[in-house]
Amino acid sequence: MDNSTDIEALRRENADLRKMNDMKSDWISISAHQLRTSLSAVKWILKMFIDGDFGKLTNEQTGFIGKAFDSNERMITLVNELLSLNHTEQTSLTYNFQNHDIVALTDSVIFDFSGESYKKGVPVVFLKPTTPLPPCAFDEEKIRVVIQNLIENAIKYSNHGDKVIISITPSPTAIEISVKDSGIGIPAAEQDKILSKFFRATNAKAHDPIGSGLGLYTTKSIVERHGGKLSFESEENSGTTFHFTLPLQRSGDGAAA
């Protein structure tokens, strides 16, 4: 192959890559639009209930509708963040690191999934740490997304009657959060690709055709921005356990924030 053919081939490849990148961006933009349309409808209706547009609610009704409204708001935030990830990748997203209670946050996410867990017949069990945890700084909204993504996957890829077990363990240098399921697992041959953007395992696609392949990629990016590590062990047809760590001392705090 001479030089000019080489350059021509590279040029073509470059054009193809650019086209694929544009297609990816458009795809995200259109999906976000569709998601936001449904989310808007839910938001507006719930707000009208809360405001009493459809008559006075009991305290219990107001409480539950308020929770539903908050959950929907979080979904809207997630869509907005996926869009900003699309724009800037993870580098320029701003993170707000402060000391928060990871146990309370996990509890609140589990509550959000109580409906889904009941519907699928997959109970979520939370093994809380027996000793108080050391203070740990993290971005609460971002780590909420991480826990949501892991629990959502664990429920989604479990079979009726399986349990999802969440545990939190401190070590001298970090807090480790684990989410264990006994679901479909990740095929051995696909495990090295599972954290890549847009990748979905063959059995996951067969189990549930709806999914962007963005969840674990986003999860990994967020954990790494905290200086932590996302890892997993998995066996097809017996289940997957995801672990992520939040370091107690982030190296180069200023640089990471």
């Binding site: 933009s29 976000a32 639009h33 936001r36 349309t37 989310l39 808007s40 938001k43 809207i76 869509v79 907005n80 869009l83 724009h87």
Partner: peptide
């Protein structure tokens, strides 16, 4: 709900008074 920077810029350029994202 289509609200990329380029969409907002285009609407402003064509004379929109404001741009609001429905879900927000």
């Amino acid at each position: 709900n289509l609200a990329e920077d380029k969409d907002i810029a285009k609407a402003k350029e064509l004379g929109a008074t404001d741009f609001m994202i429905k879900s927000n």
